[in-house]
Simulated assay, not measured.
Amino acid sequence: MIYLKFDKWTKHIIEIIGFPFTLTNKYINRKRQINEIGQRIKVEDKFIHAIVYGKSDASYTVILDAGLSCCSLDWHYIQPQLSDFAKVLSFDRAGYGWSSTVNTPYTSEDVVADLIHILKELQLKPPYILVGHSFGGLNMRLFASKYPEQVAALILIDAIHEKRYLSNEWDSVRKKSHKKNLNLFRFGYLTSGIGLPKLLKQPVGRKYLPEPYQKYIDYIGYHPKSYEAVYKEFLYSEESALQVKSSKALSTDLPVVILSSNNADPTWVEHQGLLSQLTQNTRQIKTNHQHSIHLENPDLIIETIKELMN
């Protein structure tokens, strides 16, 4: 927390020194501003943006949680099609998309607490099918652990295993990689107020999405709060990993599907194997796709969800 306070002061100083750039960046952000697709729900001292599709009488509610740096727009291929046979919720974690920021650390526990509030507010009833991509997999696993009676199935799309963010599990290569990424996210956060990441064309999340979504990306992808969100999420990723590690084991009969990419890194392959042992009712689907399987092959995700419903 002290580290983040120091960064906030540093960011503020940079914005004062580069005052003309700060004003220009604010003007551009205001000019690009576009209203949210869904609705913003009051959760304690913040607003969380959520998108809901589907019929109210659907038997299942599908919850979609995107990966690190990504938001609800990640599910634009999948959510509309899922709504034909289920109630579907996608949302932006604090700071991402159209959700407001928080002044405290934001971890998987906070995501789950916000999600429970949203589900009650929108009257989205269980059973829930949880779908988590990458970092979102940690959040969905924690949800399934805390509320097993409400969860019908869990789908992890090339998801992170908690060991990836536990520093005592790292070798020298992983330590170097983590430090590099942390410094990159920190640089983006510190300079986001003066618009440097925008000048370098380095948005948070996806650079390109098909129309009509690109205009949304051009706004939220370069907004300073998005850079703050991804930096804080990565900064406190070990805390989130520890929360998942210390949580109760999933119900042994819970249906779980692991969708794995073609990542040949030995550690990644090992972690996907560990995820495939989460329950006695877990199966792994190995694909030839890269990390964002839900964007490369949305039909695979849709069919997997349909199978679990049946």
Rank of each mutant, 00 (worst) to 15 (best):
F21E: 13
F21L: 15
T22P: 04
N25T: 05
K26C: 05
Y27K: 07
Y27Q: 01
I28N: 01
N29P: 06
R30H: 14
R30P: 06
R30T: 14
K31C: 13
Q33F: 15
I34V: 15
I34Y: 02
I37C: 12
I37M: 15
I37A: 13
G38C: 09
G38T: 08
Q39I: 15
R40W: 10
E44W: 09
E44G: 12
D45T: 06
K46D: 06
K46Q: 15
F47L: 07
F47Q: 14
H49F: 00
I51Y: 00
V52M: 00
Y53Q: 09
G54R: 00
S56M: 08
D57S: 10
S59G: 08
S59R: 15
T61R: 02
V62N: 02
L64M: 08
D65C: 14
D65N: 11
D65Q: 01
A66W: 06
G67E: 05
S69Q: 14
C70M: 09
C71T: 10
C71Q: 13
S72W: 01
S72M: 08
D74E: 12
D74P: 03
W75I: 13
W75M: 04
Y77D: 05
Y77E: 05
I78S: 02
I78Y: 00
I78W: 01
P80C: 14
Q81I: 14
Q81C: 13
Q81D: 15
S83V: 15
F85M: 01
F85L: 13
A86Q: 02
A86P: 04
K87D: 05
L89R: 02
L89P: 10
D92Y: 06
R93G: 03
G95E: 06
G95P: 08
G95K: 08
G97D: 12
G97V: 01
W98P: 03
S100G: 15
T101M: 12
V102Q: 04
N103V: 07
T104M: 02
T104S: 00
P105Q: 00
S108Y: 12
E109V: 15
E109W: 02
V111K: 12
V111E: 09
V111Q: 07
V112P: 04
A113S: 06
L115D: 03
L115F: 01
L115S: 11
H117F: 14
I118H: 10
I118C: 14
L119H: 04
K120F: 00
E121I: 11
E121P: 03
E121C: 04
L122W: 00
L122R: 08
L122M: 01
Q123D: 09
P126Y: 06
P126E: 11
P127D: 10
V131G: 03
G132F: 11
H133Q: 09
H133S: 14
